[in-house]
Design a protein around this nucleic acid. Structure first.
Lengths: 344, 344
DNA sequence: CTGAAAGCGCTAACAT
DNA sequence: ATGTTAGCGCTTTCAG
């Protein structure tokens, strides 16, 4: 007089190779051979194994395999924010390269928080990723040294690591702003404003550097009144814009150091009904549909992700050994109208 | 007379708990207790263990732990394209919920290819993910039944699965287009065009349904001349637009069934210098900066991701048992100008 | 071509 | 409070 089984879905124990072996009447090792597509298995037995696999719904346990083999077939990808278009495009590029290497990708967002970056990176290492691609959030990365010495290759993207040497993939930031300034100069501008990100951010420094270089080459004095560097927020950008336009000799053109700032400036300009020559660093979606179209210095996040992943897999496979490498990806100036307006 | 060691970086074998135990002069189990923050360890020994951990650079091997415990602390997220803003926002939301559950996320892009969807989903299962969130690419998902029966919960997002019953999180597609049409009707339009995605796509069907419902409620006859359903491409959209505008009684307003179509239409309208009342389904970045601003029926990918993840973890933890659940997420009409233009 | 045995690094169950 | 033993599911090694 036993009770009927409960009505919930039955949670079967997953079949193992041992179960398959029993069902097929062969040894566990033969199952392993068949499942892994090795040669040297009699056709008859192979068929029996495949039938048992299908019947039982067997699926090899990657944890067990990884444990035995010492590698996991995964890489970790640590971004600032998976939802940001720049990083999501980069992410997809990494995924495609990883796929070619039959590798899965763990992705995580540091949210620009160095503690969270570290936590995620070490969690990836605990999972024994075969390699790590990191967009640095924090300023120190020595916490990764033990992991790197233990054989986990790490490639940094977009910004250099804080206090260690490692492979990296960077945008040619200075070259990008240099070209943007030269472009504006060629349309007759001499008073070119620059609203950049906070100076402690690597890319912000590089971009400012390119801006200064281009002015210097053109024999134009750098003017503090025309330059702002701060964390991009709508309010801060509006203030910065005020400064540039109310300077004794106001800006006739503006270069924005990142896309968040560019968007804030566009909103301000629309509201104030001001026309100002404008070039943005980093492309924004639908930039061509604005009026005028938005001229930008476009980065190539896809190329950066692909380059980082290629470099990483070269390290993983041992195809690349020796000193650290730095890959620099160029920018592309895309004229769409806003950067070709003449001085007022 | 032995040779000097090679000059390449030394690949140390990673220390194990056994090594830590030896270094600290305790048993392996004590190391395990300390590493896992269990109570019942003498302070002196705990200190010794922690020192050995730091000195050796020990990091617990998650593969071994997973194998023993039978769960992996990971979930799989299968999207159409990680780089698409809709999915990248969804993805970030999933990541945040997973983080609360100390779980990492594997993300993969099916590229709208059912074979690739299946391949990725099964690869996730092989990695013994604790659960799976899937945006269906293919029409059949019975291949997941053995996995689900083996205890891997699966939540489908954005579209229902093909031939199985499962939890899902959907947008209120029909409700969204209904409101869009009502909105256009309220501005006096009676000839409202609809350019939707290919009819075999679930969301496309639902959106068309809402369009028809709203017309019917308003006592307006459905007119085939004003409706197109095809794979969104710039060329196809241009043709569709031609049809609507050259119909015997042409459209004065247009509802686009997805954001790719919306963008294509915007490009066409800009080129032709035509003004047409326009509402897009799904928001696009910078829609407020266009002239006129783009009126949209906004979906909420963040809410969808969060809902899917919550449901998934309820299944994983057993907080939810029993019949499948469907969560429907509402849309929001955002008037910005283009949808408030009167009939020509 | 096939199989038996050992063991990857960890945790669960059971002593002490 | 601490240690011992067994074993998760697989691959490696070695023997037939």
């Amino acid at each position: 007089m036993s009770l009927p089984p409960p009505e919930t879905t039955r949670q079967q124990r997953r079949p193992t190779m041992k179960d398959v072996a029993a069902a097929a009447g062969v040894s566990l090792k033969t199952v392993s051979r068949v499942v892994n597509g090795e040669a040297n298995v009699n056709d008859e037995r192979r068929t029996a194994v495949l039938e048992a696999v299908a019947k039982l719904g067997f699926r090899r346990n990657a944890s067990a395999r990884d444990l035995r083999q010492g590698r996991s077939g995964t890489v970790g990808l640590l971004l600032e924010d998976v939802a940001d278009p720049f990083y999501s495009i980069l992410s997809r590029a990494v995924e495609e390269v990883a796929r070619d290497h039959r590798t899965m990708v763990f992705a995580g967002s540091s949210a620009e928080d160095s503690a969270r970056e570290r936590e995620l990176a070490l969690a990836f290492c605990e999972r024994r990723v075969d390699g790590l691609i990191v967009v640095p959030a924090g300023a120190s990365h020595s916490y990764l040294l033990p992991e790197m010495q233990a054989g986990i290759p790490v490639v940094f993207v977009d910004r250099p690591p804080g206090d260690i040497e490692a492979d990296m993939v960077l945008t040619d930031n200075a070259g990008g702003t240099r070209r943007a300034v030269e472009h504006l100069l060629s349309f007759g501008h001499r008073r070119i404003g620059f609203i950049g990100d906070a100076p402690q951010i690597y890319t912000a420094g590089e971009r400012l550097h390119g801006y200064r270089q281009a002015l210097e080459s053109a024999g134009i004095d750098f003017d503090d009144d025309l330059v702002t560097q701060e964390v991009p927020s709508a309010a801060a950008t509006a203030d910065a814009l005020d400064r540039l336009l109310e300077a004794p000799s106001p800006a006739t053109a503006l270069l924005c150091g990142n896309s968040r700032t560019t968007v804030s400036v566009l909103r301000e300009l629309a509201q104030r009904e001001i026309r100002l020559a404008l070039v943005g660093f980093d492309d924004v979606e639908l930039g061509d549909l604005l009026q005028p179209g938005l001229t930008v210095v476009a980065q190539d996040p896809g190329a950066m992700g692909a380059a980082a992943a290629h470099l990483l897999f070269q390290r993983i496979t041992g195809a690349a050994v020796g000193p650290t490498q730095t890959v620099t990806i160029g920018t592309r100036l895309i004229p769409r109208g806003s950067g070709e307006l003449p001085p007022a």
